[in-house]
């Protein structure tokens, strides 16, 4: 056990590209000769249900992160951050995108974005607010929100030092469709994350 593991939970809704995002990150760590474990959600929940993917970099053995032990939470849909905030360690930040997806059921009570951010803040979580979908759209890649947030996360706390921008970009080149367009949003996310951290 030389390397203290870095624990990341990525949450959202089936179909948002969360598995790809987790894979790029883990492959980049593996390319740098580190260990990685990614516990994914497949099957039923991919039909628009809630999704949580656990990513552990470094010498971790068990696939699931313990509640209260995640070093970072990235939510691709804002209300999903409410569902999984309990994974965060004390003082660990959350990157919460402004995207709100209403569950397509009759008569669902949907909190507003302001309420979501307020509740997370009141729980003592340092929240980074993003607009990944708009940013990705502006760069001509509406499907690229996941890569934007991947870049943003790297800027916010560096994923424990197991990866860096070049290793992630190389992995995007090898693993993702339309690599150049995705690298562009990844970089934009990274830049915005650096700014937000100051």
């Amino acid at each position: 056990m030389s390397e203290k593991p870095f624990n990341l939970v990525i949450v959202g809704v089936g179909g948002q590209g969360i598995i790809t995002m987790a894979n790029v990150l883990a492959s980049a760590a593996v390319a740098k000769d580190h260990n990685a474990i990614v516990a994914e959600t497949h099957g039923l929940s991919q039909r628009g249900g809630t999704v949580i993917v656990h990513v552990r970099l470094g010498e971790a053995e068990a696939p699931l992160i313990m509640e209260g032990k995640a070093d970072l939470l990235i939510a691709l849909e804002a209300t999903e951050a409410l569902r999984y905030a309990n994974y965060l360690a004390k003082g660990a930040p959350a990157i919460v995108d402004s995207r709100l997806l209403r569950p397509p059921l009759p008569n669902v009570e949907m909190p507003s974005l302001e309420e979501v951010y307020k509740a997370l803040g009141e729980a003592g979580i340092r929240v980074f607010k993003t607009n990944a979908v708009e940013k990705a759209e502006e760069l001509g890649n509406p499907q690229g929100a996941n890569m934007y947030l991947l870049g943003y996360g790297l800027a916010v706390n560096g994923y424990g030092g197991y990866v860096d921008a070049p290793s992630i970009e190389e992995t995007i080149r090898q693993k993702v469709r339309n690599p150049e367009a995705n690298i562009k949003v990844f970089r934009a996310g990274y830049e915005d994350g650096l700014k937000a951290r100051q």
Partner: peptide, 12 residues
């Protein structure tokens, strides 16, 4: 763990 006083909508 953080205690959030707002629940997420059901999302089956």
């Amino acid at each position: 763990k953080p205690r959030v006083n707002l629940s997420a909508p059901p999302r089956p």
